[in-house]
C-alpha cells in the first residue's frame, strides 16, 4: 500500500489556515491550477476551462459543504461499524502519516496531560495514570483511509461519550475539537453526534498493548464511523465548542464530515 506524503514543502501551515477561512486554501488552489494544465482534454470537451478558475473551486467547496449536510442527515447514531474476530486483524497494521515514523511525536508519558477546554463543567487536565483508571472497552474494527486502503485493528480505551459525561461536557455543542502533538499542529473537529457514538473511543491500547508511538501514544481518538484522518493521534487537548475551528486536512480540502 502506498503511503503518500502530502506535506507541502514551503507552505506555512498557519497562513494556510488563515486563507482557508475565506475559501479553499492556497495549496489546494495551486494544486488545482497545476492540475488544470494537464486537463486539456476536459477543457476541449466542455469548451470552457472548468478547472483553472476560482468559480470551480467555490462550486466544489459548496458541494462539499452540501455533502457534509447529507452525511449528517443519513448518519444513524445507533448504526455500529462492523466488528471482526481477532483472526481478521491486519498484520502489521500500517503506520500512516504525512511524515516518517522517525518524525512522529515522541510524547513523554510523565509530562503529558490531556487538556480539556470549552463548554465543560470540569476543565481539569488529566494525567495518563488518571485516564488509565477509567473503564475501558475493546473493539476490532476496520480503519478506512481517505486514500482508499483499509486495515482491521484492535483498539482498547474509554468510550468518548463516557468521558464527555464525566467532565460535564455540553453535549448540545456542535463539535469536539482535538489538537495533537504532531509537527505542524495536527487538529481535527469531530461533530458531536459522532463524538457520542457508542464506538467512538479515547484509545490507550492497540492489540491489548499500550498504544505504541506509531499509532499515536499516548492517546488516539478512534472513530470507526469516520475516515482515518478524522481519527487523531498524539492528542494533547480537546475542546467542546460550537465553533467550526477547521482541521489539518479539512482546511486543505478533504471533506469535513468524512463519515463512513
Amino acid at each position: 500500500m502506498a503511503k503518500r506524503s502530502f506535506l507541502i514543502p514551503g507552505v506555512d501551515k498557519r497562513l494556510l489556515i488563515k486563507d482557508s477561512i475565506k475559501t479553499m486554501p492556497d495549496v489546494t488552489r495551486r494544486r488545482f491550477i497545476a492540475g488544470g494544465a494537464s486537463l486539456g482534454a476536459l477543457t476541449l470537451l466542455t469548451g470552457c476551462d472548468v478547472v483553472d478558475s476560482s468559480s470551480a473551486e467555490n462550486m466544489l467547496a459548496q458541494i462539499s459543504k452540501f455533502n457534509d449536510a447529507v452525511q449528517a442527515f443519513i448518519f444513524n447514531p445507533d448504526a455500529l461499524a462492523p466488528t471482526f474476530p481477532e483472526s481478521a486483524i491486519t498484520k502489521p497494521f500500517p503506520f500512516n502519516a504525512y511524515y516518517d515514523l522517525d518524525d512522529a511525536p515522541d510524547v513523554s508519558a510523565a509530562d503529558w496531560k490531556l487538556e480539556v477546554r470549552g463548554l465543560v463543567d470540569n476543565k481539569k487536565s488529566w494525567t495518563l495514570d488518571e485516564l488509565y483508571k477509567l473503564p475501558q472497552v475493546s473493539q476490532i474494527t476496520r480503519h478506512i483511509c481517505v486514500e482508499g486502503w483499509s486495515a482491521i485493528g484492535s483498539w482498547t480505551g474509554t468510550p468518548l461519550r463516557d468521558f464527555l459525561k464525566l467532565i460535564g461536557a455540553d453535549t448540545r455543542a456542535k463539535y469536539v475539537w482535538f489538537q495533537c502533538a504532531d509537527k505542524d499542529g495536527y487538529n481535527s473537529p469531530l461533530d458531536m453526534r459522532s463524538a457520542l457514538h457508542p464506538q467512538t473511543q479515547m484509545t490507550f491500547k492497540y492489540a491489548n498493548e499500550i498504544l505504541p508511538r506509531a499509532y499515536g501514544f499516548p492517546m488516539k481518538i478512534r472513530v470507526p464511523t469516520k475516515l482515518g484522518f478524522k481519527n487523531p493521534k498524539y492528542v494533547v487537548s480537546m475542546e467542546v465548542t460550537n465553533d467550526y475551528k477547521g482541521g489539518y486536512w479539512e482546511d486543505q480540502g478533504y471533506n469535513s464530515f468524512s463519515g463512513s
Partner: peptide, 29 residues
C-alpha cells in the same frame, strides 16, 4: 493513484483535481 490497487498508476495528465483532495471533491460532486 493515492493508493493503487495494482502495480501501476494513471498518468497525472489524465487525472482531475491536481491531488487526492481535489480528486475527491470532483468525485463527490
Amino acid at each position: 493513484n493515492a493508493s493503487p490497487l495494482f502495480g501501476f498508476s494513471f498518468p497525472r495528465e489524465y487525472t482531475l483535481g491536481g491531488w487526492l483532495g481535489g480528486g475527491l471533491l470532483w468525485h463527490f460532486a
